[in-house]
């Protein structure tokens, strides 16, 4: 078996791993009770899911230029998805999206004047 075949198979494995991660985090979006937990679940697809699909595509079509592109794509994706989740979480908290009742400690609540409005 040539090296290219092995890389092809590995690439497919990584791509399917990424797809599975994204599907599972989509299930998490429905299953989890509040905004913050859902944002955490989506983090798995935005981070590991996309990164392993890019890695798989790189393995299937490897070249020096593609390597550089893939590294830039993964770093940019990780940074922007983190900033996006933080912005969504903060906006949610400021707009009274209260954490689900199973949240047993909430020290950010000290910064709120009162609990008003729905969730």
């Amino acid at each position: 078996m040539a090296l290219a075949d092995i890389a092809d198979i590995l690439g497919l494995v990584f791509i399917f791993l990424g797809i599975a991660t994204i599907i599972i985090s989509a299930i998490g979006l429905f299953k989890l009770p509040d905004l913050y937990l859902r944002a955490s679940a989506v983090g798995t697809s935005a981070g590991l899911g996309v990164a392993s699909i890019v890695l798989g595509a790189l393995l299937m079509d490897f070249s020096g230029l593609n390597l550089i592109k893939a590294v830039i794509a993964i770093i940019a994706q990780l940074l922007t998805s983190a900033v996006g989740s933080m912005a969504i979480a903060r906006a949610g908290y400021l707009n009274n999206a209260l954490p689900a009742p199973i949240t047993h400690i909430d020290e950010l609540a000290l910064t709120r004047r009162e609990v008003s409005g729905g969730r």
């Binding site: 944002a39 679940a41 981070g47 900033v83 933080m86 979480a89 903060r90 950010l108």
Partner: peptide, 10 residues
């Protein structure tokens, strides 16, 4: 925030 399961709110 990048490690799933923990999230910086502010």
């Amino acid at each position: 925030t990048l490690t799933p399961g923990t999230l910086t709110i502010t």
